[in-house]
Every structure is written in structure tokens, then in C-alpha cells.
Design a protein around this nucleic acid. Sequence first.
DNA 1: TCTGACCTGCGA
DNA 2: TCGCAGGTCAGA
Length: 268
Amino acid sequence: MPELPEVETIRRQLLPIYKNEILEKIDFRYAGLLKNATPDDVRTALEGKPLQDIDRFGKFLLFRFPEHHLVVHLGMSGVFIKDVAQSRYPQHIHVVFHFSANKHLYYQDFRKFGKMWLYGSRVDFSQYGVDPFSPEFTLKKLRELLHLTRRNIKVFLMDQHQIAGIGNIYANEILFEARISPFKRTDELTPEQETALFRSIRAVLERAIQRFGTTYSAYRTVEGESGENQHFLKVYHRAEQPCVRCGTPIEKTTLGSRSTFYCPTCQV
DNA sequence: TCTGACCTGCGA
DNA sequence: TCGCAGGTCAGA
């Protein structure tokens, strides 16, 4: 589910509600999502501590406490919910955060692909690529990455070790915006296409953030609402519908074992 | 570089 | 009942 815009939307919504509140208690109802610690480790490290900030790297959320971080990846169906009826929890609530001021936060994930890690004051993301909204992401940097490999451009965009944060929906939309065929290899792009790709990555992601992300099934905002960006998608899930630019029917294929949508006329 | 596995829900 | 789904990783 959640790609960079959805994770950023969640971060922006959580921050004003929970920042500086004390995490009084944390309940793990499904401990399997913790990858490098036990529930006891997390309780010892975080309970009684204030949530100082929430950061994002790629598709990861970083809950910053004094001396520790709780790092969360939402997988395909993970959501944070502000309020649920505590008398009868909905299905698949795996973690409950009890904060001061009687505030609660619920982590729900029906497919259990989401993961959590406990880290110290520093979190190492060096194995991952560059975040598109970090200062390091420049046209020069993108060109370097493109020229280091000879891979399919769409598979490249979705590789978190190259650029962190782009998933299948936005890879499709970015390539449409840049008028680049998803079948192109990274070393086949013209300088003009490289520039268009750079601009499209930020533009498509930025617009999706402004629209609170894209909801297809599981994704909801912290307030429990759908995003709005699904109403503005140009190619994703639009197979056989006319291209908004030229009217040619959008085609669907499979690339890197993922659904791929493109306009065969204006993406070259 | 590609495939399967991890999970569950939904729609055809 | 089966195939598919917005992610990631190990292993072939």
C-alpha cells in the first residue's frame, strides 16, 4: 500500500496530535511484526518517554524518543488510526500506543507485511537509496544512479536501494508524466528524458502528498479517511481507458512482476 | 535478474 | 474458488 506520499501524509497528521506526549504504555497484540527486539525491549526503552518527533525516510516512519527510535514500515496494508472503539477492537489491531492526555494510537495491518524495529539514537539507512525530498536528490545524482546500471527504468524507480519511497502506483504515474516508456532501460534515456524524469518524480509525489495520498483498498489517513489522489491518476488502473493527453487506450502489462500501465503513443 | 514466500481480503 | 493486490527479501 503506502508509498512515500501516504507515509508522509500519516507523518504530518500524527505529529500535531502526539508530539511531546509521554508514551505511557505500549501493547503488542501481535509481536511478530517486531524484527529486532522483543515487546519487553520496546517497553523498557520507550515507556515513560516523550515522543520528541516523527521523521520519514522513504517509506519508513521514525518515531523519535530520547535515546531510541521506533522505526515502522507499513508494508502493504499497515495503517495508523487515531480512534477506535476500545470496548471492541476492530480486527487486526496489532499495536496499541497509550499516550499522555488520554490519547491513543492504533496500528492495524490485516496482511501483516508491516514491520517495526527498535533502534538507538541513530538509525542507519545507508543500505537504502536517496529520498526524493532530501537535498542529496539532484539531477546530477539521478543521472549518476541511472548510469551506474542498465536496468528497466520502472524496476529502477521502484528499487528502494536506488531511490527510497517510490512504489508501483507512483512509478507508473511518474513515467507517464515524463513521457517515458516503462520498457526503456536506464542507459537509453536521452538527457531531456533524464531531466523530465527528475522533475516528474518530485512533482508527482508532491501533488500526491497535497491530496493526502492514493487510496485503493487499505490505505486510510490517521483520521480514517481515504486519500484523494486516486481521482487524479493518469494511467494507474486505467487500462483500456483513453489517455488524458492523446486519447490512445492505456495499455496494461507486467514488468518486474508488477502491474504496469502506460500510454503506447505518448510514452516513448 | 527473476521467482516465491510472507498474509488476508476482495471481486470476478 | 481463484487470481490479484500499493512491499520486501531470500534464494535460485
